[in-house]
Each structure stands twice: as C-alpha cells, then as structure tokens.
C-alpha cells in the first residue's frame, strides 16, 4: 500500500520532460509545492541526478538539494567571503546502480580496516565511522523512507580502493518494481527534444 502512495504522488505531479545531451531530464512539480528534478541516462536508464527544491517558510526559494549525483557547487565562487569546506576534505556523493544504492566518498586515504559501516534501524539511517576519528557520516536512504520500507543490515556492504570508500545497499524488490513502473511511465512522456521548456516553477 505504502509503496503505491509514493508513485501516486509522482503520478499526480505536473511533469515536464526533456531529452538533451544523451539524458532524459524530468521536472516534477509536486502538489505540495516541492520541485523534483531527475536525469536518466538514455541508453542504460540509470539515474544520474536527483535533486529537490522547496520554498522556505518565509517565501524565498532555497537552492537545489542534491540527493543523487554530484553537487555542482558553482555558488561558492560568488561568495568567497564566507566559509566552505576545503577541497582536500572527503567528498560524499550518491551514485546508484541498477541493483543497489551506492555511495562514494572520495579523498579518504586511510586503510580499509579503519572504516566501519552499520545500520541503525531505530534512527532509520546508516552510519560510517572511522577508528582514527577522521570521518563520520550519518545518512538516511530517502528511497526507503518514502516507501516506508525497513532497513536491513545484511543488504549493506562496502569496499575501499583508490582513496575511495564505496558503500552499497542492495535495493529491495519493492524498490526495483517501483522503479520499473516509474520508468515505464516516464518513457510515455514525450519530451521536447531540444531547447528551453517553460516550466511553471513559480
């Protein structure tokens, strides 16, 4: 039941599609005013980017919050007055494959036995810890939260190579079928091939 409600939300939203640069780009305007943008690879149908934007309570528009894909931080060049993480710090990003959710953390030059990755079902999140106290990250899996599925510690695995820690979580079959269904729906949308589309964002 719960699995269906999320796809119903997406079905009810106003969608605009665009095929550009070898990617299928979809913009959803949800009924509660939030905006969701997704990009899929045309050939492999893999999700490349998923990001959110919502109105702040005071009425201003917040910047895009990236859920999947790389954060394009071009705003940083505008205000070099403030504070930002140094480029030598670990970079956290999510990049999914067909069968699993995957997170890659670059710039982690420590041996593999330093890391420990665990699931905390009570907080509905995954925690990455380091025994040398250099890195710590607590993150949730929004896909599972949206479909209200439980977290399973046995689905989690991680590897370390080339200064990169890769954490994978095997997608449960409910998620796989949901993604199939959504993809079918999206392919039915005929997108404009090129150029600007005026989407109602305001």
């Amino acid at each position: 039941m719960a699995v269906h409600s999320w796809i119903d939300v997406l079905k009810l939203s106003k969608k605009t599609a665009l095929v550009h640069d070898g990617k299928r780009k979809i913009h959803y305007l949800l009924t509660d005013g939030r905006e969701l943008a997704e990009e899929y690879d045309l050939k492999t149908d893999e999700l490349i980017v998923r990001k959110w934007r919502h109105k702040s309570p005071l009425g201003g528009q917040s910047s895009w919050q990236v859920e999947v894909g790389e954060t394009l931080d071009f705003t940083a060049s505008f205000d070099s007055d403030g504070i930002k993480e140094s480029s030598s710090n670990p970079v956290f990003m999510r990049k999914d494959t067909k069968s699993s959710f995957q997170w890659r953390i670059r710039n982690l030059p420590y041996p593999k036995d330093v890391f420990s990755v665990s699931v905390v079902p009570s907080d509905r999140c995954v925690i990455i810890k380091t025994s040398n106290k250099k890195y710590y990250k607590k993150f949730s899996i929004p896909d599972l939260d949206r479909s209200q599925l439980p977290l399973d510690g046995s689905a989690l695995s991680f590897t370390h190579a080339n200064n990169t820690l890769i954490v994978s979580y095997k997608k449960p079959k409910e998620i796989l079928s949901l993604e199939q269904e959504l993809l079918k729906e999206l392919k039915k949308l005929k997108g404009t091939a090129e150029g600007d589309v005026d989407c109602k964002t305001q």
Binding site: D81, I83, K84, S87, N89, T130, K133, Y135, Y136
Partner: peptide
C-alpha cells in the same frame, strides 16, 4: 568522531 578543514573567506 570526525575532523574537517574549512577554507575561510575575508
């Protein structure tokens, strides 16, 4: 648990 370096602006 962790440590991070930040770049500072003026």
């Amino acid at each position: 648990e962790m440590e991070t370096i930040y770049d500072l602006g003026n």
